[in-house]
């Protein structure tokens, strides 16, 4: 599978990274080169193999239903580029 300029732009858009046409064009061979290389995995026979789910055998722990956190609004907002009246502020979203 090889990707074209259109696909690169689509991936950039899905990734929310704005790219100029020149940047996108430069990425086409770069990404194709890498994707072409990883595609060699297709030749591995994986019949009957389950995808790895846990790197080291371990089980998912569940925590108790107790309020142990929150009430840290100052900490939550401390690094915000724009915070007003206890909220994060973003450009107006039209729904």
């Amino acid at each position: 599978m090889s990707i074209d300029l259109q696909t690169v732009k689509k991936i950039a858009s899905l990734s929310r990274i704005s790219v100029t046409d020149a940047e996108a064009e430069a990425m086409v061979p770069e990404l194709n080169n890498i994707l072409g290389w990883v595609e060699q995995l297709g030749e591995v026979d994986v019949t009957g193999v389950e995808p790895m789910t846990a790197v080291i055998p371990n089980h998912l722990r569940l925590r108790d239903d107790v309020v142990t956190d929150g009430n840290v609004r100052d900490k939550v907002l401390a690094n915000a580029p724009q915070a007003e009246h206890g909220f994060f502020a973003v450009p107006k979203v039209i729904e």
């Binding site: 998912l60 722990r61 569940l62 925590r63 108790d64 239903d65 107790v66 309020v67 142990t68 956190d69 929150g70 009430n71 840290v72 609004r73 900490k75 939550v76 907002l77 009246h85 206890g86 909220f87 994060f88």
Partner: peptide, 30 residues
């Protein structure tokens, strides 16, 4: 571990995990 009660002041029932600070991780509630 942040509370779920309805009607609290904005962003007071938010942990660093809920705000997706760098390096924060989820642990499920039984």
């Amino acid at each position: 571990g942040a509370a779920t009660a309805f009607g609290a002041e904005p962003n007071t029932q938010v942990s660093l995990v809920d705000a997706a600070m760098p390096g924060m991780l989820p642990v499920p509630n039984r």
